[in-house]
């Protein structure tokens, strides 16, 4: 059974919700990425979404854009990200890792080579923001061949027919984009999310994670009540940005701890 399914099954049986932190590989420095992954896992993260930096992050707000720029300045590559996951797996066999980013770095490597290496190093899922189901047929076949879950986005604008389409292709979990906007936007309205989730559940049996615009323990807690997992990205990247190399691991751990407690009290 896949790591992602194992985690969500366990959480469901405990009546708990997943905490899913996102941060960009190679930010603030490549040498700190694996220590950060271990730290968030230890502090209570259930699954890690690891950002693959891209030169043109169209769906991201300024915070994650800057993280991408820092990572690229540090010469972070997709190959390098896969090596980091291999390193992480030497000490952590349980926490699922999903690579999140844009399609072109994978296109450049080739989907078959990418999927094969994901399987080898222990990546569990892949989320490519700019590859909707309509353009994902080839990608999907390669990921499936190597047991990598394709994670798809659903949005406030997605209609029922498209939800059906995504439901057929998605594996692992589905990522519901909580608002119309970019990552880290300030216009999250949880009453919209509350209305939407039951509609999604009519078509989707996989766990539903919710992200974009979740900025503190309070919103994380309120979101957790509505779904199966809470994705926190920009807030964590902000913490990384505001820290120095000596205290970044400690600061991010403290933030994850705080989010964990809030979500468990939901």
């Amino acid at each position: 059974m896949s790591r992602i399914k194992t985690v969500f099954d366990r959480l469901a049986s405990q009546n708990r919700k997943a905490l899913i932190p996102f941060f960009t590989a190679g930010d603030p420095r490549p040498a700190l990425t694996v220590p950060l992954m271990h730290a968030v896992a230890k502090a209570g993260a259930d699954l890690i979404e690891l950002g693959v930096p891209f030169s043109d992050p169209m769906a991201d707000g300024p915070v994650i854009q800057r993280a991408s720029e820092r990572a690229l300045k540090n010469h972070m590559t997709l190959k390098g990200v896969l090596e980091m996951v291999a390193e992480f797996r030497k000490q952590n066999a349980a926490t699922p890792v999903v690579l999140m980013g844009y399609g072109n770095p994978i296109e450049a490597m080739g989907w078959e080579a990418f999927a094969k290496q994901c399987e080898e190093v222990g990546v569990d899922g892949a989320l490519t923001v700019d590859f909707p189901p309509e353009e994902s047929h080839d990608a999907f076949l390669h990921l499936q061949r190597h047991g990598i879950d394709p994670i798809f986005l659903l949005a406030p604008t997605t209609d029922e027919a498209r939800i059906e389409k995504v439901a057929k292709l998605a594996r692992g979990y589905v990522y519901y984009v909580s608002l119309k906007g970019v990552t880290g936007a300030g216009n999250l309205d949880l009453s919209d999310v509350e209305k939407r989730i039951p509609e999604l559940r009519r078509h989707i049996s996989l766990p539903i994670g919710v992200g974009f615009g979740i900025r503190d323990a309070r919103t994380a807690q309120a979101t957790a009540r509505l779904c199966d997992g809470v994705v926190v990205g920009s807030r964590i990247v902000q913490e990384i940005e505001a820290s120095n190399e000596q205290n970044v691991v400690e600061n991010v751990s403290a933030l994850i701890n705080e989010l964990r407690q809030a979500i468990d009290q939901a």
């Binding site: 169209m58 923001v129 590859f131 909707p132 309509e134 353009e135 949005a155 604008t157 498209r162 984009v177």
Partner: peptide, 12 residues
């Protein structure tokens, strides 16, 4: 060609 966009914009 194609429609390589994030989900929120696909309906648009």
């Amino acid at each position: 060609g194609g429609i390589y966009m994030a989900e929120t914009l696909i309906p648009a």
